[in-house]
Design a protein around this nucleic acid. Sequence first.
RNA 1: GCCUCCAUAGCUCAGCUGGAUAGAGCAACGGUUUUCUAAACCGUGGGUCACAGGUUCGAAUCCUGUUGGGGGUACCA
Length: 592
Amino acid sequence: MTLEQKILFHLSEAVKTIYQSTTETNQFNLQETRKEFEGQITVVTFPITRISKKSPEQTGEDLGNYLKANVDEIISFNVIKGFLNLVISDEYWFQQLKNEYLNPNYGIMPTSGKKVMVEYSSPNTNKPLHLGHIRNNLLGYSVAEILAANGNEVIKTNLVNDRGIHICKSMLAWQKFGNGETPESSGLKGDHLVGKYYVIFDKEYKKQQDELKAKGQSEEEAKKNAALIQEAQQMLQAWEAGDEAVITLWKTMNSWVYAGFEQTYSKLGVDFQKFYYESDTYLLGKDIIDEGLSKGIFFKKPDGSVWIDLTTEGLDEKLVLRADGTSVYITQDLGTAQLKYNDFGMEESIYVVGNEQDYHFKVLFLILEKLGKSWAKGLYHLSYGMVDLPTGKMKSREGTVVDADDLIDEMVATAKQRTEELGKVDGFSEEEKANLYQMIGLGALKYFLLKVEPKKRLLFDPNESIDFQGNTGPFVQYTHARICSVLAKAAFNGNEQFNFPGQLSDTERDLIVMLSQYLQILQNAAKEHSPALVANYVYELSKLYNKFYHEEPILKLEDENLKTFRLALSKSTAAVINKAMALLGILVPERM
RNA sequence: GCCUCCAUAGCUCAGCUGGAUAGAGCAACGGUUUUCUAAACCGUGGGUCACAGGUUCGAAUCCUGUUGGGGGUACCA
């Protein structure tokens, strides 16, 4: 039983005995005591006045006295207006540190037995990844790590969008304008090479449209009649028919893209246990259409198209199969959802996809529920806001994107420059330097993207560099390195014996209290699917440690017991920083 | 039109299921190092929590409406 549970239990007992009431514990509200008051745990007494029929102050006094008499850890209390502040003994916090937070297993939850799938990244194979994809990748990876830390078995999957008209556009442009260019011949990373032709396609296509419009065609006609788009459509048909030449080209260009993606993924430090490819899954879902028709959930229109009526749910009528019998986006997704469940039988399945698809997923989940899929209630769309530039939306076609590889390189270069300015790499080998710059540059980028609540849209100004000071990844990394430095100088290994030093300073106590909150943060982050909670916590923790570091000497202490205690506190803090940052996919250095 | 998300300091963001005087970072200004790493710490200034109602002992938080912005809206994915 945790201290919180103990207090809640006795609170409920107190109300029963003092006020002869049978109120359940969920009526009580425990919170952290604000900094300016004495104590660590606060009970808000306003809600209880309804039962006590006394003033908030008197109620606080009554409950405070009862709790103090019945809970050993509470040594005193004070009542300010409707707030009962409980002062927990320093000895208790000390023991918590020694027994719990210093334990290497602190923050590792027991197995829940639950299986969770996280699908993320899901790139198109016609262009390189950009900043928006980075947000997606980091979110997906981090949420997966958070769920795993909560004891779940997590399967990270990537559903690659490797077919369709957009892919044909790149292929066609390469065929027409590429002169046999390859990644080897051009020195370009494969995904960038393919992306180049995607942009070329769009440029040439626009040119053709303008020519047609000059001849008097309307915008719409020009879009349809341009030779290039018609060729691309023919190519898609040839692909679907299994045309050998087209398939070969498709395979070749995709292999270039995959090689490029692999590099970017590896730099970002994200990984997957299972890849699905739309070229394999795009025909799935038709049996689900039949199932829906036979269950009377779908209906057929005279032209043969299949629909579902969701107007009673406040949505629209939605097409689920074209009149010609071919599938649309949602048809495939219905099929793929079933396939994923058949493959893994997971309780929960999370889709990390931008908020532009909110409606799509709402409909998808609703349909699966209506079809009576038992697993439909475990589906969750982790919707996140777009990353916008000051000039507006990023558009790959028009080349107005912040390229993922460029940005990563830039961040690493900035990290290098800053580190050299500070002159902190004396005695580092070249390899160690390179690792450190990578760690810091990526740390800054990842933290920058993950500290913001997923659903909020993010504005990125390429002209303003990402910070390395203040509420940033490098700040947290620096704090970790700083602790490691102290521990190394003391040759501290964590097994040294130490006793309660008699009392704790305010900052020592605050630090231990904060360490105690890590488990709660971990659970909330999983519940809310929000790495931002972890990021903000680890920042606050680092800030508090730096305060402690400045206020209290460690190595200079002559009192060996106190010194060991402070080293142990430092070590516990470093361990939590390390674990929390790992949940964000950020590595922390021992020196920087 | 309809649906949906967002709006907190000059800028970027926290603010947990409603609780005490709304907090950080950046930017500005001032201070701290004969060194346990100054990528740090301490301090000053900066707010009509978009606006208007409502619920409540209590609202940045919940409800309704208004304004502004993003996204979606049936055979693209």
